[in-house]
Design a protein around this nucleic acid. Structure first.
Lengths: 173, 173
DNA sequence: CCGTGAGGCTAACGGCGTTAGCCAGCCTGG
DNA sequence: CCAGGCTGGCTAACGCCGTTAGCCTCACGG
């Protein structure tokens, strides 16, 4: 992960992330990205083969930070699914554009650091005591809640805290 | 809904749907859509103000058919959440591109037929005996399972039937 | 001192959504 | 019977997108 990118490439990814989080995926453009760095769009191709490669690095950040957030939550309240779920929800809602970018398309698994995907999944699997079916169900529930909330799918007056509690209580009594 | 669109507009929407379901959102282009109809792209603007308006009609189809599918499932097995969930999953996986198009962005509520959104939600609310928090949790679970499966997020060897059962059993004992 | 690679640049291509403006044919009212 | 307007096509073009080709400058190592 240290030598995964050159320093300049890291600057580019950082700018891409700022752009994405500030303005959403529509404004994450090779031209606006270059603008922000004070260079021209074609110069970006000296550092990344295409736009997709830049986005992959953002997905790596999402997965890494998700893993960190979940590990921290687990350390603070071992065995607590509520703590894990709260951390997941909080992180996702704090970075909605990044969350959607990394989530609403197939995972570029071959381009990811080895073990990263598993690392992000482990805390939940531990709190489910190794029950993978349950872990997948909980993950689907949490992901569904987050994306539906991000996209404004619930009624404006929906009590989402209550729905979270209701779901978590059912899934992990 | 009958006079919602002119006949020609309905043909355009039908072609758009074919294109979307066959080839995915990237190929749902004003030019390819026009091609399929034997006309040129600018002519489409005689029937719709912009591409978004065409997509809204596809979302209307998704919501309408979802409502129908759920109502049918409910009629066949009243009170069964499993039947509802199976119908939902089956429909979504049969139309993955349409499902994602209608689901992975804010709902254009003001442009939808009145009552359609509620109608699609009602069967689930009934099976949850009016418990809206539970209904939202179940919806989030089902949506999460479907989109994660569509985007290949689960491991290739995941037993998704088991995860569905596990989640449904927990949420609706 | 020269060569080379790193990292910029401009020009351009094809595809996208969209607009402006033109035109053929049909339907209707006087 | 024909004049006018509406319907639904068309071409040309604009500005944006990702991307490629090809050029230039400069630092650094042999």
């Amino acid at each position: 992960m240290a030598d995964r990118l050159t320093p300049r490439a890291r600057e580019i990814v950082a700018a891409a992330r700022d752009l994405l989080e500030e303005s959403g995926p529509d404004r994450l453009t090779m031209r606006t990205l270059a603008d922000r760095l004070g260079i021209k769009a074609p110069s970006l191709y000296k550092h990344f083969p295409d736009k997709h490669a830049v986005e992959v690095e953002l997905v790596v950040q999402l997965l890494t930070e998700t893993a960190e957030v979940l590990e921290t939550a687990e350390a603070g309240a071992p065995g607590s699914l509520e703590a894990l779920a709260g951390a997941y929800r909080g992180y996702a809602l704090a970075h909605p554009h990044l969350y959607c970018l990394g989530t609403e398309r197939p995972l570029p698994r071959t381009e990811l650091p080895a073990g990263l995907e598993d690392r992000a999944a482990l805390p939940l699997l531990r709190v489910c005591a190794g029950d993978t079916d349950l872990a997948r169900a909980v993950w689907a529930f949490a992901h569904g809640m987050v994306v539906l909330e991000i996209h404004g799918r619930f009624p404006a007056d929906a009590e989402l805290d209550a729905a979270w509690k209701r779901g978590l209580r059912a899934l992990h009594p």
